[in-house]
């Protein structure tokens, strides 16, 4: 049909805002695969994930004009998706289906190279995260990794907003201490 596949995500979103379903399709092909995987790691119900993915892209269609063109389309899309997941789990009363970030140790077989690379990427963040309590890890995942606001995280985790705030504060402080200590 004459749509160059190398249009930027920004351009595609603009086209979607103008009513172009072909552009939505390209966005879908680019982003749905990784989003579906990342969503599965938050909730292991395939049926729910399929519905969330569908809701997400319909929401993208309707709200594409709301994207402030700051270039991070992937992040914006993820924000839409994670919020859809949270609201779907909440309305179904199944927030316990939300899989918390476990302190899962790495398998011994990962290559040394990869260890080094991921170590460089996130420093000792991974192991520092492992030393956090599960509650603090949960708020870090919700607020830092998934980009939820404190209020949304509170709704997801079923705690007060103040609790999220203080746990996040303590988690960040602990991580900072860990990483600084790691350097010295």
């Amino acid at each position: 049909m004459g749509h160059p596949v190398d249009r930027s995500d920004d351009d595609l979103l603009r086209a979607v805002a103008g009513g172009d379903t072909a552009a939505l399709r390209v966005l879908y092909e680019r982003h749905a695969p990784w989003m579906s995987v990342r969503l599965m790691r938050r909730c292991n119900d395939q049926g729910v994930i399929a519905e969330v993915l569908q809701d997400t892209f319909v929401a993208v269609w309707r709200g594409a004009s709301g994207f402030r063109g700051d270039g991070d389309v992937g992040g914006w899309l993820w924000g839409v998706a994670i919020r859809r997941l949270v609201s779907r789990l909440r309305s179904a009363g199944r927030t316990t289906q939300f899989v918390p970030l476990e302190a899962v140790p790495e398998r011994a077989e990962i290559s040394v190279e990869e260890r080094v690379l991921t170590g460089v990427e996130y420093g000792d963040l991974g192991s520092a995260m492992g030393r956090l309590s599960p509650e603090m890890r949960a708020v870090v995942q919700a607020c830092v990794l998934d980009g939820l606001t404190e209020r949304e995280a509170a709704q997801l985790l079923g705690v007060q907003r103040g609790t999220v705030k203080s746990r996040l504060h303590r988690a960040k402080a602990q991580l900072r201490r860990d990483l600084v200590e790691g350097l010295t």
Partner: peptide
């Protein structure tokens, strides 16, 4: 089957990298 450290890394990276996507 990836550990949490790898997962965090991959997730944060893939969000921004078209090739890996």
């Amino acid at each position: 089957t990836a550990g949490s450290m790898t997962s965090i890394s991959v997730e944060q990276h893939v969000q921004r990298c078209a090739d890996c996507r």
